[in-house]
Computed example of a mutant assay.
Amino acid sequence: MATLPPGTLLQLMYLKERLRAVPPGRFVEIGPGAGHISALLLSLGWHGVAYDLEPSTIDALNRRFPAETADGRYVAVNGDWLNATENEKVDLVVSCMVLEHLDDAGEKAFVDQAHRSLSSNGRMITIVPGSQEHWGIEDEIAGHYRRYTADSASALFDGADWHVNHTAGLTFPISNMLFPLSNFLVRRSEAKKLTLSMVERTKKSGIRDVPMKTNFPNIFGLLLNERAMYPLHLLQKAFRSSSRAMVLYVETVPAQ
Results as ranks from 00 to 15, higher is better:
4 L>N: 12
7 G>N: 10
10 L>D: 07
16 K>N: 14
20 R>H: 13
25 G>V: 01
27 F>D: 02
28 V>H: 01
28 V>S: 02
29 E>D: 00
37 I>G: 00
40 L>N: 03
40 L>E: 11
43 S>D: 12
45 G>M: 07
52 D>A: 15
55 P>W: 04
60 A>Q: 06
62 N>E: 11
65 F>H: 04
67 A>P: 14
68 E>K: 02
69 T>P: 00
70 A>S: 05
77 V>N: 11
79 G>M: 07
80 D>A: 13
85 T>L: 14
92 L>H: 05
93 V>H: 08
97 M>Y: 07
98 V>S: 03
100 E>D: 11
106 G>W: 02
106 G>A: 07
108 K>W: 07
113 Q>M: 14
118 L>S: 13
118 L>P: 12
124 M>V: 04
131 S>L: 04
138 E>D: 10
140 E>W: 12
143 G>S: 12
144 H>V: 01
148 Y>T: 02
149 T>W: 02
160 A>Y: 00
161 D>R: 15
161 D>G: 09
165 N>W: 13
170 L>I: 13
171 T>N: 09
175 S>P: 02
179 F>R: 06
189 S>R: 08
204 K>T: 09
205 S>G: 04
205 S>F: 01
205 S>H: 08
209 D>K: 14
213 K>G: 05
215 N>P: 04
217 P>N: 04
221 G>R: 11
228 A>Q: 11
229 M>L: 13
230 Y>T: 12
248 L>Y: 04
249 Y>T: 01
254 P>G: 14
